[in-house]
C-alpha cells in the first residue's frame, strides 16, 4: 500500500513519471513496486479462492447446516463497486485536464460508493441466517468477503486521504500525481477481486 513507499510529496518534479534513469538518476519505481505488491496480494486471494473451490469440490455441507445466500443486495453492491471504478477513472481524467474541483468531487463520489458498498455488506452480514462459526461454508464466506471488505475499507480511506491532499493547490499535477494514481490502481484491483469473488461465491 502507498504508505510502504517513500512519501510522495518530496520527490523533485524532474523525477516524475516521464523521467527514466539518468546517469546518476533514480527514476520513480513506486508504481512498479505497488504493482508487484498487488501481485502478492492477489496471490493471497488466489489461495483463499483455491481453498474455497476445493472445499466445494470435496466437502459436503453437514446435515442440517444452513448456508443460503440471497442475491439482490450483493448484486446492487457489485454495481456500486463497478461504478466506483469508473468514477475514479473520471476523477483522474479531470485531473489530467487540471479541473481540480471536479476531480475532488469525483473522488468524493468514489469514496462514497466504497462506503456504500461496505454498508451494504454490513446489512448483508446482519441479515444472513448463519454466523461465522456455523459451518465450513459460512466461515469461508465470512473470511473471503471480510478480507475483501478490509481491502475496500483501506481503499476508501486512501481515497479520502487523496481527496484531502487534493485540496492543496499544486499537490497533484497532471504529470505528477503518484498518490492518486496509486489509489486508483489499488481501487481497480479491489474491484476486479470482487468480481471474481462474486462470481465464485454467489453465482457458481
Amino acid at each position: 500500500m502507498t504508505t510502504l513507499s517513500p512519501s510522495t510529496d518530496s520527490l523533485p518534479a524532474v523525477a516524475g513519471d516521464a523521467a527514466p534513469v539518468l546517469e546518476e538518476g533514480h527514476g520513480d519505481y513506486r508504481m512498479f513496486g505497488l504493482a508487484t505488491f498487488l501481485l502478492a496480494d492477489g496471490m493471497t486471494f488466489a489461495g483463499f479462492f483455491a481453498a474455497y473451490l476445493t472445499f466445494r469440490a470435496v466437502n459436503p455441507l453437514p446435515a442440517g447446516a444452513i448456508y443460503e445466500l440471497e442475491l439482490i443486495l450483493p448484486t446492487i453492491n457489485t454495481a456500486l463497486l463497478v461504478l466506483s471504478s469508473f468514477t475514479f477513472h473520471r476523477a483522474a481524467s479531470e485531473l489530467k485536464q487540471e479541473r481540480m474541483g471536479r476531480c475532488r468531487w469525483w473522488l468524493l463520489v468514489t469514496a462514497s460508493l466504497g462506503f456504500a458498498f461496505l454498508g451494504g455488506q454490513m446489512v448483508e452480514y446482519f441479515s444472513l441466517p448463519f454466523g461465522l462459526t456455523d459451518n465450513l461454508y459460512a466461515s469461508t464466506f465470512y473470511a473471503l468477503t471480510g478480507f475483501h471488505g478490509l481491502h475496500v475499507c483501506l481503499g476508501a480511506l486512501m481515497i479520502m486521504i487523496v481527496w484531502w491532499q487534493a485540496r492543496q493547490p499544486g499537490r497533484f499535477t497532471p504529470s505528477e500525481h503518484f498518490g492518486l494514481a496509486a489509489a486508483e490502481l489499488y481501487w481497480h484491483f479491489v474491484d476486479v477481486i470482487w468480481l471474481i469473488l462474486f462470481g465464485i461465491l454467489y453465482l457458481l
Binding site: 455441507l61 442440517g64 443460503e68 445466500l69 440471497e70 461454508y137
Partner: peptide, 23 residues
C-alpha cells in the same frame, strides 16, 4: 440443495440456496 429460504419477501429466483454440496 433443494432447500430454499424464506422466499416470500423476495421475488422468486433471487433467493439462492447456495449450491454448495449438501449433506
Amino acid at each position: 440443495s433443494a432447500a430454499t429460504g424464506p422466499s416470500d419477501s423476495m421475488p422468486p429466483g433471487m433467493v439462492m440456496a447456495a449450491n454448495v454440496p449438501s449433506a
